[in-house]
Computed example of a mutant assay.
Amino acid sequence: MMILNKETVPIFREQDVVPFRNRVKEYTIKIGMGILNQTKLITAASELVRNMLKYGGGGNASIEVVSEGKNQGIRLIFADKGPGIQDITLAMKDGYTTGKSLGLGLPGTRRLVNEFNIQSEVNKGTTVTIIKWKNG
């Protein structure tokens, strides 16, 4: 996989969320991603960026244009230095929440994208990486 373009955006306040979402949308338009896949990626990005703020105390979100063969996509990486996730298996179950939100949660987010990876270490932080392919 090749990285064609990369940008990192610090997310530490609620006011950082909308500009970040707008940047993601700009990247999807640049590679010619269809509206349905744009919507899925932006929805997933919104959920993950809000999780990073709420549970991880903020962090950095990277936007990358990636290519594999002729296919292009957007990879988003959300990295925080928060308390981490005690039980990733539990956190990935539908209906699981530690808050009072009706958010998509991690399982809903995973269904919106083509690739989803989560790594977390208690007291060290969490990194979630997602990819949405232009034609996927």
Rank of each mutant, 00 (worst) to 15 (best):
G59E: 00
G34N: 15
Q86Y: 10
L36E: 15
G57V: 05
L104C: 07
N71W: 06
L104Y: 03
L106P: 00
V66F: 07
Q72F: 09
G56Q: 12
S67L: 03
N60T: 14
T39S: 13
G99A: 10
Y55M: 09
G103S: 15
L76G: 00
Y96T: 11
M92I: 10
A45I: 07
M92L: 15
E68P: 02
I42S: 08
I88P: 00
L48V: 14
I85P: 03
K40E: 10
M33W: 04
T109A: 15
Q72T: 12
R75K: 15
M52E: 09
T109M: 07
E68F: 13
G84F: 06
K100W: 07
Q38K: 11
T89I: 07
I85Y: 05
V49T: 15
L76F: 00
A44R: 13
L48I: 13
G84N: 09
T98S: 06
M52P: 00
E47S: 10
A44F: 13
M52L: 15
G69C: 10
G56L: 11
T98F: 02
K54G: 10
L48S: 12
E68D: 14
G105N: 02
L53S: 01
G105S: 04
Q72A: 02
V113D: 00
G82F: 03
G56V: 11
D80F: 01
R111F: 06
G95A: 07
L48Q: 12
I77R: 14
A91P: 06
Y96G: 06
G58L: 05
V66N: 08
T109W: 03
L104G: 08
E64D: 06
K70T: 13
R75A: 09
G56T: 11
G59H: 01
L90I: 12
G103A: 14
D80T: 03
T97E: 09
T98D: 01
R50C: 02
L36C: 07
K70D: 13
A91N: 09
K40R: 13
G69V: 10
Y96V: 11
N51Y: 08
K54I: 13
N71P: 00
L48F: 14
T98K: 04
D94T: 02
L76Y: 00
G56F: 07
A45F: 09
V66C: 04
G105K: 02
T89M: 08
P107D: 05
T98R: 06
R75P: 01
G99Y: 10
G84I: 07
G105V: 02
L53K: 02
K70L: 11
T98I: 14
D80Y: 03
T97I: 04
G84K: 06
Q38L: 05
S67A: 15
V113S: 00
T98C: 01
S101E: 12
A91K: 11
G56P: 08
A44L: 14
Y55H: 15
D87E: 08
I42A: 05
T43R: 04
